[in-house]
Structure formats: structure tokens, C-alpha cells
Design a protein around this nucleic acid. Structure first.
Length: 329
DNA sequence: CTTAGGG
DNA sequence: CCCTAAG
């Protein structure tokens, strides 16, 4: 069986199964990535840095000609191919590729790399190598570890290197290549540990973040990627609200109500805090939503239930007041 | 520039 | 978080 890294684009798509097709629509914007859910739906149950795919030609389609030959790369990957039937007319193929690796890919990554820019950087590097013939998409799956498995008595683990109340955010970036057939490889990517603490007062101060992203500082740059020159496309780095910030927000809303986000920002948050009044508004929106859904539907309990109760109460109160005001007019 | 909502 | 129509 012939192996070809990137089969002809004109050949029939190998994976017609809806669950194994990864279409990378890059019609408008490549980012933001909101496909996270895509991976969470157990789409890739065995995707632990490895790649797995399979396709079985329906036995009814017996007269399959050679165009549907299964092809895959053999570069440092283990491929297992098995014919379900010895009958040549009954052409069934089950292909499984695990541990697909791309050797020798060095990418310069600036020390201040964020997950977002890292995806962009990798994207550009890949496209630079492969050219325009392939569609390249990068998806990231992130996990949040709210519980750091600390001893019960360790209330405030401020002695730990990275002990953000919200836990450590871990990112894993997957690269999906598509060209008739789907190849994929993954790279572990970790950057940006955000750390911030809030005081007991209303004001919230943010500490300098600890960045650990210069692991590749001395890596050979196979593909020179401009570290700058794409500022317009970059997003702000994602900095999840800490519990302290949420509490400060809730207190401010209780006092000022919803709809005065600028004041909320001014009163409850330190001037230097990175969260803008828009962020506060957005956060309140998600807080209300979180408070309304059942605890089971929430992911890791970042915000204490007690605080969420206050959210609901405040939201109900100010929502009611708004109705009154509107009615009086 | 701030709000308010959808993206 | 971003984008933006409306105040």
C-alpha cells in the first residue's frame, strides 16, 4: 500500500463520517476559537497526543475502484491497517493512526507569548511550511483546575509559585490538517500562569503575572516568525476573574446596581486592575447565568455558591427596580 | 465615551 | 473577550 503524506486534494474525502471531518472554515476570522465544545463532546476519545481515525467502506459499495485507496504517512507513526474481509470485492478498510509526529519543527516564540498568540505563531509556521495547499486549523482545549488538591487546612496557598485562586489554566493546542484526508498532530503548549490576589477590601489589586514561556529561547528557528507585526489581530490575554474580584464585583453591584459599569469599575476595583468596566459587565452576565444553572452543569466551582446566591439576589432586586422605573414613566 | 447585547 | 449599534 502506498503511503503519501498529503494525498491529492482531488481524491475523495476519506472521512465522510460526520464525526471525523474537521472543516476549518477560515472564511472570516481564524480566531476567536469557539470550537472548544467541539472537542469536549468526546469527539476524540483517544486523542491524548495521538491521532486516531478510522473509516469503513460500506460493503454495499463493492465496486470501489482504486481511487479510494487509503493513504497515510508513515513518518514516525504507527499505522495499523486491517482488512475486515479477505474478499477483494468486499472492500473494508480500517485505518488507525496513532502517534502522528512531525519531526523537526522549531518555532521561535517570544517570552511574552500568550496562548492566543502562540496558536497564531504555530499557525503561521505550519502554513509557511505547507503552503496554501492545505487547510490548517488550530484548536485548543483548555482545562481549568480549580482545585489544586491541597491539604484541607491550606486555606490560602500563597506560598506556592502559581497559586491563583482560580487555579492554573492549562492549555493544549491541537493542530488539525485537512486535505482530503485528515492528518493531525499535537503539540503541548503551555504559557501564561496568571496569578492575582485580592484583598479583603473592596479594591482588587493584581500582581505581576509570572510567565514561563522562554523554554524555547534557544531553539533553532526553522521558520522565522515575526514576533511583532500582527498586533491588530491579537486579543487581550485572557485573565479569568479571581474569586476576590468576583466578590468585589458582587458587592459593587449590590450597592450600585447593574447598568453603571463605569462606576462599578471605579468603586470596586483598583485603578490598575486590568478588568475594564466592559469586562465587569460581561462577568456579571456570566455570573448570573452560572448562578441560574444547576451546580452540576457548572464546571469547576470557581465561585462559591454563597456568592452566586448574592448574584441572583442582586440581579433580581435590580431587575425589579428597573421595571419600576420603567413603569413610572 | 458609556450602555447594552449579540458574537 | 470582541464588536458595535445606540444613547
Amino acid at each position: 500500500m502506498a503511503f503519501d503524506m498529503f494525498p491529492d486534494l482531488k481524491t475523495k474525502p476519506l472521512f465522510r463520517n460526520g464525526r471525523t471531518i474537521y472543516s476549518c472554515q477560515r472564511s472570516q476570522k481564524i480566531f476567536p476559537f469557539k470550537k472548544r465544545k467541539f472537542f469536549d463532546q468526546s469527539t476524540l476519545p483517544t486523542f491524548d497526543g495521538a491521532f486516531h481515525c478510522e473509516d469503513i467502506f460500506n460493503s454495499s459499495n463493492k465496486r470501489t475502484n482504486g481511487n479510494n485507496m487509503v493513504s497515510a504517512t508513515e513518518s514516525s507513526s504507527s499505522v495499523t491497517s486491517q482488512h475486515a474481509s479477505l474478499d477483494s470485492r468486499d472492500y473494508k478498510v480500517k485505518l488507525s493512526i496513532k502517534s502522528f509526529k512531525v519531526p523537526e519543527l522549531f518555532i521561535e516564540i517570544p517570552t511574552t507569548t500568550t496562548v492566543g498568540s502562540l496558536k497564531r505563531t504555530v499557525m503561521e509556521a505550519i502554513t509557511a511550511i505547507l503552503g496554501d495547499g492545505l487547510h490548517v486549523g488550530i484548536f485548543s482545549k483548555e482545562r481549568r483546575h480549580a482545585k489544586m488538591m491541597l491539604p484541607p487546612h491550606t486555606k490560602n496557598p500563597s506560598n506556592l509559585p502559581f497559586s491563583a485562586p482560580g487555579g492554573i489554566t492549562r492549555h493544549t493546542t491541537f493542530l488539525m490538517l485537512q486535505a482530503g484526508t485528515s492528518h493531525a498532530f499535537s503539540i503541548p503548549a503551555e504559557t501564561n500562569f496568571n496569578s492575582s490576589v485580592g484583598s479583603d477590601l473592596g479594591a482588587v489589586c493584581s500582581l505581576a503575572k509570572a510567565s514561563t514561556a522562554d523554554k524555547m529561547s534557544d531553539s533553532r528557528a526553522l521558520v522565522p516568525v515575526p514576533a511583532i507585526g500582527r498586533g491588530e489581530l491579537s486579543r487581550r490575554i485572557r485573565r479569568p476573574f479571581t474569586v476576590a474580584e468576583v466578590e468585589a464585583l458582587v458587592q459593587a453591584i449590590e450597592r450600585l446596581g447593574t447598568g453603571r459599569w463605569r462606576d462599578v469599575k471605579l468603586h470596586a476595583f483598583d485603578k490598575a486592575n486590568h478588568q475594564t468596566h466592559i469586562d465587569l459587565k460581561d462577568k456579571w452576565k456570566t455570573l448570573v447565568h452560572t448562578a441560574r444553572i444547576s451546580p452540576q452543569q457548572r464546571r469547576v466551582e470557581l465561585v462559591p455558591q454563597e456568592v452566586l446566591d448574592k448574584v441572583l439576589a442582586a440581579q433580581a432586586y435590580w431587575s425589579y427596580r428597573r421595571q419600576l422605573v420603567k413603569a413610572e414613566v
